[in-house]
């Protein structure tokens, strides 16, 4: 079985987000980059399924060389090989177009539910449509038995179970598995695993980010005495008018 896991490289969750150049560029100064938390789940579950079925897991990332330490991390978790498509992505649709060019021939393709930087949640469905295969978003379970994949996925207000003969693409949601922590042997092995760099091929003309904005800061908290906590309800009803 051949499995492909798409990974994005994102600012660490503690990053304070700021912008430069008149709010047109994300300020990368001092930012630590990590493997997108949902992709960590996709890689882990992909490895578990590959290992149980005598398969392989390939990692793909669309991005520049700075991402290589994070790609090596995915390799140190146990992935067999990696592909980096050497481009600065403009948006998630472009990423999907690039990945689609190398993604045929896999039985299962995994992405994260969304990247925690641009939060598009787009790559899974786009890839499915480009490759003409089913896509299953926000999955909390993936199993493979009797030649079929089965999934649980979050739906609005509940959960649904699905089967699919494959090939298909699915996006990982929390609860899928516990992320695997690389061990020393994995880290050593990752150094020499194949990492192929490919030139970009797709057209990037879907969208263009023109500027950024930070949320309006709160003007200050109004404190209510704990002895008279019930007053809060009155304030929410009559002053804030939200209940």
């Amino acid at each position: 079985m051949k499995i492909l896991a798409c990974i994005s490289v994102v600012p660490d969750t503690t990053t304070k987000i700021t912008f430069t150049d008149n709010n047109t560029q994300f300020n990368t100064a001092g930012v630590q980059y990590i493997l997108n938390p949902y992709d960590e789940l996709a890689v882990t579950r992909g490895l578990e399924i590959a290992e149980a079925n005598g398969g392989t897991l390939t990692i793909v990332h669309v991005g520049k060389a700075e991402a290589e330490p994070v790609i090596r991390k995915a390799l140190s978790m146990g992935a067999n090989e990696a592909i980096r498509i050497d481009a600065e992505p403009t948006d998630a649709q472009y990423v999907a177009e690039e990945i689609a060019k190398i993604a045929s021939g896999y039985d299962l393709i995994l992405t994260g539910r969304e990247s925690i930087d641009y939060n598009s949640g787009v790559v899974c469905g786009m890839l499915g449509s480009l490759l003409g295969i089913p896509s299953i978003n926000v999955v909390t379970r993936i199993d493979f038995a009797d030649g079929k994949f089965s999934f649980d996925r979050d739906i609005d207000g509940g959960r649904e179970s699905i089967t699919c003969a494959g090939p298909c693409v699915a996006s990982a949601q929390k609860d899928l598995c516990e992320p695997r922590i690389p061990n020393m042997r994995g880290i050593m092995a990752a150094r020499t695993k194949p990492l192929q760099v490919l030139a970009p091929q797709a057209n990037a003309n879907f969208s263009k980010c023109t500027s950024y904005e930070l949320p309006v800061a709160k003007s200050g908290v109004k404190l209510i005495d704990a002895q008279e906590a019930g007053k809060l309800i009155d304030i929410l009803r009559n002053e804030a008018k939200v209940i």
């Binding site: 987000i17 930087d117 939060n119 879907f206 263009k208 980010c209 500027s211 904005e213 930070l214």
Partner: peptide
């Protein structure tokens, strides 16, 4: 205008197609 960085910011994107 769309939410980015999981609620930490917004971006303005021009949809070109």
């Amino acid at each position: 205008k769309r939410g980015v960085f999981s609620g930490k910011a917004f971006s303005f994107v021009d949809l070109q197609r």
